[in-house]
Write a protein that binds this DNA or RNA. Structure first.
Lengths: 232, 232
DNA sequence: ACCTGAACACCGTTCAAGT
DNA sequence: ACCTGAACACCGTTCAAGT
């Protein structure tokens, strides 16, 4: 009888939301947050600004969606699959986040923003759920589940943020040499501090060059896991 | 004989670096990072853009200096002074950072940036030194000082970042009511999750409204401190 | 030495107009 | 429904010119 609007009335969609998000991640990986401009997007995708805004709302939303996509993918991919103990599974999740941020340094800042502003979003919920289940498997009484999971997540976020590379570096030009140089300069600066005013920094200055971020991260996880016994 | 340049050849300085930093902090406190524009600064200080750049280099440097100023002040001010044990002193430092970020939410992001990019700067060094001394007083063997201090600092940064208010809120209009509403909405969203897919989030949803950020933070500190026994 | 303020290049976002 | 692209308001930064 009456004319119904076609359920899928699309005519000629050549640009998709997924495409935009994908290119956004590329731009972010290549040059950090500053490299994600609407104009850079329109050039790579050969469209106009309006087309972008038709699909994504605004730049901040795009940044959030990119974060969501990358983090969710990292948490969903089942790596070794064989997580024997709750402790192991927590390490697997933590390292997945660690490695993801190493690949996408812009995530460090964005991850924190997500969790602060959007605690009901898939990123926050995904991380908490994944960690939280292991907390309960660990034998922490339910009354302390929230505190225990929070402590783990907060430690992971703080540590993982530290691993992020320096922003604005022009893509990966000898990242390793840069890093050694950077650590060396830091060690030197710590060494140069007045031992009277900074006895501790002076004492640990030597350790910084030989330390391994990933190992230190795992040590930290072990410390927190050990401390959770307090809540039992 | 020869004409020497006057050692202090200033003629009519009416604008100081300190003044600029002070107004920058005001703008940041009032409206977050987006509110710190060179134009807003020139208006408040009734000068031109050039005057700002004569004193501070650029916006990013100003942001770093503002961070430095606020954090250093927070760490320097001796609060109760009576820190009986190393554990107490760690709590004092941690809470000082916690409260400072509550007052200056824009610090959350900036603090992490500082520590990542400028590990030899006064902020990183100040926090590490303060925490590190207590780690050694705690009886952690020197070989583990760096790991122990890192774990504490990373936890503190991760947790403290969570406490930051939502950015861009128009100054403090009933911040408490906003916060209750925010937590309530979060609890509801967690409650609404499918209990099959998110058993943990569902289980802790009730706790979020009754929980106290500061107390939870202290619980986390206690967990990490407890875990440090592992390194002894 | 310190400051002015116009000028420049570059942003994010909107919107009338097209198909 | 989906896209174009000019236009707008607003950025950070520079720099010749003033005192």
């Amino acid at each position: 009888m009456a004319t119904r609007a076609r359920p899928t009335g699309r005519r000629n969609q050549v640009l998709s939301r997924e495409q935009i998000i994908g290119t956004a991640v590329e731009l972010l990986d290549a040059g950090g947050e500053g490299a994600l401009t609407v104009r850079a997007l329109t050039e790579r995708l050969t469209t106009g600004a309006g087309a972008i805004y038709y699909h994504v709302g605004n730049r901040d939303e795009l940044l959030d969606t990119a974060t969501e996509t990358v983090v969710t993918a990292a948490l969903t991919t089942r790596p070794a699959q064989t997580a024997a103990t709750p402790e192991d599974e927590i390490r697997v999740v933590a390292l997945a986040l660690f490695d993801t941020i190493a690949e996408h340094p812009w995530l460090a800042t964005r991850l924190i923003l997500q969790i602060v502003r959007n605690p009901a979003g898939p990123v926050t919920v995904g991380i908490f759920e994944r960690i939280g289940r292991q907390v309960s498997a660990l034998g922490v009484p339910q009354a302390h589940w929230f505190d225990a999971a929070s402590t783990l997540v907060h430690y992971i976020l703080g540590a993982v943020g530290q691993n992020a590379r320096i922003e604005g570096d022009t893509s990966g030009v000898e990242p390793h040499a840069d890093r050694d140089e950077f650590l060396g300069a830091t060690a030197e600066a710590w060494q140069a501090l007045d031992p009277e005013d900074y006895p501790f920094m002076h004492a640990i200055a030597g350790r910084i060059s030989e330390h391994d971020d990933r190992e230190q991260f795992l040590t930290g996880i072990a410390v927190v896991l050990g401390g959770l016994a307090r809540l039992r």
